[in-house]
């Protein structure tokens, strides 16, 4: 009965997921990956759909160049680079959300996606990464459009004190730029929902940033995520951006001492019930 009551209560208190918000125009344009969805296909491959857009709405993206590097994973975050990596160019199509890009993977792999767009003579680079868990090797590491080597573009190297395959709020991320072309000495701007939320100075290990917990994400399910964009601008207006899709923290809301009290209360109630409902047996003469 008690269980039924609690489950009914939970049904009633269930909340809907996070809602999307529109981007506000902002100075210092950059490119960002705005949405991502991953689905499993009937042949066991996974399909990643990404949208690329400008931070300034209404800017028509010219002819972007997109490629991705898919690196086989042996475990969740151990890669077998470089011999296990494949570099592929990608095609794209225009959609209402910007440029739509689709990637397939038939194996466990980490896909790093890179795009370059030229707007008004300035180059804007956008990068993101996902772990893709394709099954059974069907359509593994598609060979078409394979490039002999990756273009010599700036690249963010990201590490974390938590799981990188499931980035969460409250986790510290360290970002370093390779082949930066003079942008590494600049500050890193962090954008969240069209708003700059932080500016990080470079340290010896790179840029360190710990995203704050987000009540909207907390109320949504653990699969919900939001894009955080890390941007570095060069002096002449070029930009390099990394979009990280972070989920809510799995453990930030855990309270052990309160839990122990509830556990003890359960034990106490159960013990009292057993004590009060016991029967005493007398000895028959």
């Amino acid at each position: 009965m008690l269980i039924f009551f609690f489950v009914c209560l939970l049904f009633l208190t269930a909340n809907s997921g996070a809602s999307g918000e529109t981007l506000n125009p902002a100075a210092g344009a950059f490119m960002q990956w705005s949405s991502a969805s991953i689905e499993r296909l009937a042949d066991s491959r996974v399909k990643l759909i990404l949208a690329l857009e400008s931070s300034s709405p209404g800017v028509l993206l010219g002819n972007p160049v997109v490629f991705y590097r898919l690196t086989r994973l042996e475990h969740f975050n151990e890669t077998t680079a470089p011999e296990g990596a494949g570099i592929h160019s990608l095609s794209w199509e225009r959609s209402t959300a910007g440029l739509k890009i689709v990637i397939f993977s038939g194996e466990y792999g980490r896909a790093s996606i890179f795009a370059r767009v030229e707007i008004g003579g300035r180059l804007h680079y956008a990068q993101t990464a996902f772990n893709l868990y394709g099954g059974s090797g069907a359509g593994a590491f598609p060979e078409p459009n394979r490039l002999p080597q990756a273009p010599d573009w700036p690249e963010f190297l990201v590490s974390s004190d938590g799981p990188l395959y499931w980035p969460q709020t409250g986790q510290e991320f360290t970002l370093k730029i390779e082949r930066s072309g003079g942008t590494s000495a600049k500050n890193l701007a962090v954008w969240d929902n069209g708003r700059q939320v932080a500016e990080v100075k470079p340290g010896a290990a790179g840029f360190r940033y710990r995203p704050e917990h987000d009540p909207i994400l907390d109320r949504a399910g653990d699969l919900a995520s939001k894009p955080l964009v890390f941007v570095v601008h060069s002096g002449d207006g070029d930009s390099v951006a990394f979009t990280l899709f972070v989920h809510r923290s799995r453990r930030a809301g855990w309270n052990l001492s309160a839990g122990l009290w509830v556990f003890a209360a359960g034990a106490l109630v159960s013990g009292m019930l057993a004590w009060l409902t016991r029967r005493k047996f007398g000895i028959c003469a």
């Binding site: 939970l10 208190t13 269930a14 909340n15 907390d218 109320r219 809510r248 923290s249 930030a252 809301g253 855990w254 309270n255 052990l256 309160a258 839990g259 122990l260 509830v262 556990f263």
Partner: peptide
């Protein structure tokens, strides 16, 4: 054994 206070 923790209470998860992430949401209701």
């Amino acid at each position: 054994l923790s209470l998860d206070c992430t949401n209701a």
